[in-house]
Design a protein around this nucleic acid. Structure first.
Lengths: 199, 199
DNA sequence: ATTGCCTATGCAACTCGTTGCATAGCAGGA
DNA sequence: TCCTGCTATGCAACGAGTTGCATAGGCAAT
């Protein structure tokens, strides 16, 4: 589990309340790690009990009080230890890939609008990344260590989105070709009901 | 949840027992959807109760009996309905990205061997994909619908691994540069304890 | 003979993650 | 005035996923 570690990184970058962390996870951090406010509050309580973070009650006016957390030394040490541990292989859950293979047993054309929606959303995310890059890293020649590392992660996000867009275009072209083939009659076995698959 | 749907696709491609499905999930399917045998057995029982799959006891000699499942019509219908539903945005869990940002608060050099390990494992997976492509799709001009769709998913896997390899090289170059900078003294703020991050 | 591995299925306990709801004060608009 | 929405935290219940263990026969190697 790395939610603790993602929270520690976020608190080291900037102390904040559970609520603020939840919003960060909705924004920048959520691009590589997601979490709901429930998870965050629960984990923060555990981390406080373990001494990984320190909490300070802050009264605000016009707003409810908040508990501002910051990373404590044991948390820092735990993060450093985790850095040196090999990480387990990421478990992949690629729903769209399942759908694409599923389309062979139904109608490939039925997937086109879904893939188009995904394409739009990835294109929008790429645009946000590129804007974020210009805003947060205007001078790439003058970055400190923290920014260098944030930027290399962002570059990964950008390349991932570019790759994904190109692949989704490939998928769309394939689905459209199969849909045309189907209409022109020489569809060969896209809807067989026997079990002669090649698992 | 899409585990049911992934199982249905696999059973449509080829009927099989829970055990066989578990092995498929360890191999080809596991590249885009992971599951343990426990999950698979549990879900198969539920799907059988719902009429999505049909089970047949098969006696074997020299081995324990097995229950061979195949997709039933209600399952097919459920799969078709799911295909037409918009899928929720994939939740991302990119542990290595968390580690890279965490390295700013520790020693960037400590991450190098870990990133190298990841690079090796992605390189190995790319090789397996390319071999699998040659084995399963020797003649790209003569694919039926099912194979076309399996191949476009495989192309996605191949492009993902290529992109990842290039990015990991970028990460390694960045980490090595920061490690050198650190040794030569002009490391500027890689270990600050204030909170001036740009969350 | 014993050890270890493979096929094949399953229970029990646990953690992780999600969803719905609750509280509570304040701000802004219809 | 009521409704909506934001900040801020939390409980309770559920579902998904993991881990450890159990059973049980057969196979191969030491």
């Amino acid at each position: 589990m790395a939610l603790e570690h993602a929270i520690l990184v976020s608190l080291l970058e900037q102390p904040g309340s559970g609520y603020e962390l939840a919003r960060r996870f909705d924004r920048s951090i959520g691009r590589f790690w997601t979490a709901t406010h429930q998870q965050i509050y629960r984990v923060l309580r555990r981390m406080e009990a373990d001494g990984w973070v320190a909490a300070e009650e802050v009264a605000q006016d016009g707003r409810p009080d908040k508990k501002v957390y910051s990373a404590a030394d044991p948390g820092r040490a735990a993060l450093a230890a985790w850095l040196r541990e090999p990480v387990e292989p990421e478990t992949v859950r690629h729903e769209l890939a399942v759908k694409i293979r599923a389309a062979a047993f139904d109608d490939p054309a039925a997937l086109i609008s879904e893939v188009e929606r995904h394409r739009e959303s990835h294109a929008a995310l790429l645009t946000r990344y590129l804007h974020g890059e210009q805003r947060d890293f205007p001078d790439l020649a003058a970055l400190d260590t923290r920014q260098e590392l944030q930027h290399v992660v962002l570059r990964g996000g950008i390349e991932f989105e570019r790759m994904t867009l190109a692949w989704l275009d490939d998928v769309l072209a394939t689905l459209r070709r199969l849909a045309d083939d189907g209409r022109n009659g020489h569809g060969d076995g896209d809807d067989r009901r026997d079990g002669t698959g090649n698992g």
